[in-house]
């Protein structure tokens, strides 16, 4: 235990921990920018000052709360804390996605929750076991990756469902023409389901097309801020993009496959009662 050895260790720590810790003072300074926005809003009569203030306050509360919770899960490092956290996230995503679709079908929120948790789980297991070869339930990987995969799958699930329902309402005549040709509901909706899955995948594919050219994605930026080698950050970004495109596709295919039958009777008739159970846009 020589002084020299301690000195070297400190330097090594400094090299992998370059993030400047933010405290209350830093945060207060940061909010100065919000103050500028509020002033601009007032001067220009934009009328968004109140909303920006509320949004900022909400961001502070929500982010600090989630920071606290994730911090706790990180401290636990147990499989059940990680799994519990992922399941809660899935439920929030499931209910949010079901709400966005504006459909009123019995059990829809739980259906979304079930599908999203299973599909995100499968994706995460593939990422964790054969790809990253993690040997523990490390929350540092599983929680942020799971959150990103889940968030995107949630959007894909609701987008595809929404598109399917819109098309079913607008193209009922085409679907009935197919039914009259002795097609099953699954056969009659095949073109609509394909369009719905494509619609859900398009945003992710577009993101992948321009990633790194137009903007640096959040995760890569975050990793570089955290001191990672840019090359490693790029590879992790690739990892998450591939995981997202996989899980998005799986979510869209699953939801359209499971849900399309809800709009038909067992006698292969369009169930207009089910189709009419969509809250109108307002």
């Amino acid at each position: 235990m020589t002084p020299g050895a301690i000195h070297i260790t400190t330097q090594a720590l400094a090299a992998i921990e370059p993030v400047r810790a933010m405290g209350p003072w830093h945060t207060a300074m940061l909010l100065g920018l919000v103050a500028v926005v509020v002033i601009v809003s007032a001067v220009m009569h934009l009328g968004v000052g109140r909303d920006v203030t509320i949004a900022t306050a909400r961001s502070i509360v929500q982010l600090l709360a989630i920071g606290l919770i994730i911090g706790w899960v990180f401290d636990q490092r147990t499989w059940y804390a990680v799994l519990g956290m992922l399941l809660v996230m899935s439920a929030v995503a499931g209910f949010t996605a079901a709400g966005r679709t504006k459909l009123r079908l019995v059990g829809l929120s739980w259906l979304f929750t079930g599908a999203l948790s299973v599909l995100t789980g499968v994706t995460l297991v593939y990422i964790a076991v054969p790809v990253l070869q993690l040997d523990t339930w490390d929350p540092r990987y599983l929680i942020p990756l799971g959150g990103m995969i889940l968030g995107n799958a949630m959007t894909a699930a609701s987008l595809s469902t929404e598109r399917l329902v819109t098309d079913l309402k607008q193209r009922t005549a085409d679907v009935e023409a197919m039914l009259a040709m002795s097609a099953s509901p699954t056969q009659a909706t095949a073109p609509l389901r394909r369009a719905a899955v494509r619609a859900a995948m398009t945003p992710t594919i577009n993101t992948m097309m321009v990633v790194g050219i137009v903007k640096l994605p959040g995760m890569m930026t975050g990793q570089m801020l955290g001191g990672s080698d840019p090359m490693q950050a790029a590879l992790y970004q690739l990892l998450i993009l591939v995981a997202i495109v996989f899980c998005d596709t799986a979510a869209a295919v699953t939801m359209t496959t499971v849900l399309h039958r809800r709009f038909f009777t067992t006698a292969w008739q369009v169930d207009r009662t089910a189709l009419s159970r969509v809250r109108s846009e307002d």
Binding site: D174, E176, S184
Partner: peptide, 24 residues
């Protein structure tokens, strides 16, 4: 009609709608 399987019934009974609905 309730005793026909939908596919069998519609194989025997074809329909032409008012609006021509050709699938794309």
């Amino acid at each position: 009609v309730t005793q026909w399987a939908p596919r069998d019934l519609r194989r025997r009974v074809a329909m032409v709608f008012q609006e021509p609905t050709l699938i794309g």
